[in-house]
Every structure is written in C-alpha cells, then in structure tokens.
C-alpha cells in the first residue's frame, strides 16, 4: 500500500530508516517542510496526517503506509492560498520563513483540536465542551513550534485572525509571545 502525499499516491522507500521528513524532502523534493533540529524540539517539520499534526522528523515513513499526509504544498486550492497562508502575509507572521510551513501546518491541526474541545495545559476547566481560545491558549498550543526570528506576535495574530472570531483572542499582550517560545 502506498502513502498519500497531498492527494497523490507515492511508493514507500525500501529502507525503513527513512523518516517521513526525508521522504518528503529527499525522495519527493517537496522542500516546503523544513528540517530544523531533527529531534522533535522545534516543530519546523510539522505536517498533517489525516488532519492531525505530527512532527515528520521522528516519524518513520514506513509507519504511515496508507495514511494521507498534507504538507504546506498541499494547502492552497488551485491558485488560492489557504486563508491562514494569506493571514501570515497580512500579519507579518514571519521574517526568514524557515519555521513558517511548520507553523502553518501546526496551526491548522491546532484549530481542529480546539474545535473538538481538546483541553490544553492552560485550560482551567477540563470539562468544558467549548474552550475559549484566549491568547494564552493559542500560545500554549503552539509551543511546539519555535521561531527564532521572534515573529511570534505576528504568528499569533495570523492564527487568531483566521480561526478565532472573538475580541478576547485578538487582543495583543506583551506577555503572549514569550509564552510560546
């Protein structure tokens, strides 16, 4: 059984040592997904597997046989960028851009987790069905994605503008970006 990358069926490599990240970059030349630390600490390699965010550097490709992987290259529809991609441009959600594909894939997975009511470390009440997407919640949920340029405020603005539609979550505070780092 192949693996599905951005809708296309692809054969798995024979060598089980190949990570999902290396399959994407070195075998398929999909260089959007980035290698940062290669040890699960930075989130630059974040992709979506059947809609769930994972880090592709510590994923052996062979384990994802038959699964549907979405990378940053698979987010646009035709010539139209994903709304979050547009928001990153609008809100200066990056400087060098290296962490950006991981940030964007991670935030899309994060929005789905929030939508289904998954609590986080900073959620006060574990039993609420609807979690208020405060700045603190967004920062905690995005803490697996580092940005060394310091674009976290723009990243949070872009995510809030795309997925959150309340005033609370749009208010910017000086403390919020540090919590994400």
């Amino acid at each position: 059984m192949p693996i599905i990358i951005n809708g296309a069926a692809v054969s798995l490599p024979d060598d089980p040592r190949v990570s999902l990240l290396d399959l994407l970059r070195e075998y398929l030349h999909l260089a959007g997904t980035k290698m940062g630390c290669n040890q699960g600490a930075c989130g630059a390699c974040t992709v979506l597997v059947d809609g769930e965010r994972i880090i592709s550097c510590l994923a052996l490709a062979v384990q994802y046989e038959g699964r549907a992987i979405t990378t940053v290259e698979g987010l646009a529809t035709g010539g139209d960028l994903h709304p979050l991609q547009r928001a990153f441009i609008e809100h200066d959600g990056f400087q060098c851009g290296y962490c950006t594909p991981g940030q964007i894939c991670s935030a899309i997975g994060m929005a789905a987790e929030l939508e289904r009511g998954l609590p986080s470390h900073v959620t006060a009440d574990l039993l609420l069905d609807e979690i208020l997407a405060s700045r603190e919640e967004l920062a905690e949920r995005m803490s697996g994605n580092l940005c060394r340029c310091g674009a976290h405020n723009g990243i949070m603005d872009a995510i809030a503008a795309t997925f959150i539609h309340t005033e609370t979550s749009r208010s910017t505070g000086p403390d919020s970006a540090e919590a994400a780092a």
């Binding site: 699960g40 965010r53 880090i55 994060m110 986080s120 959620t123 574990l126 039993l127 803490s143 697996g144």
Partner: peptide, 23 residues
C-alpha cells in the same frame, strides 16, 4: 480521564508538544 482522573489528563497535557502527544 478528564472527569475522574484529572491528575492524568493534566500530566499528559503538560508534557512534550501537541505534535509529539499526537504521535
């Protein structure tokens, strides 16, 4: 787990990152 064993839900949610917890 969230209702009866909050210590467990909170411990897991305080570990690693969301991506790592998903895997």
């Amino acid at each position: 787990v969230r209702e009866t064993y909050p210590v467990l839900a909170r411990a897991i949610l305080s570990g690693a990152s969301a991506q790592v917890r998903n895997m």
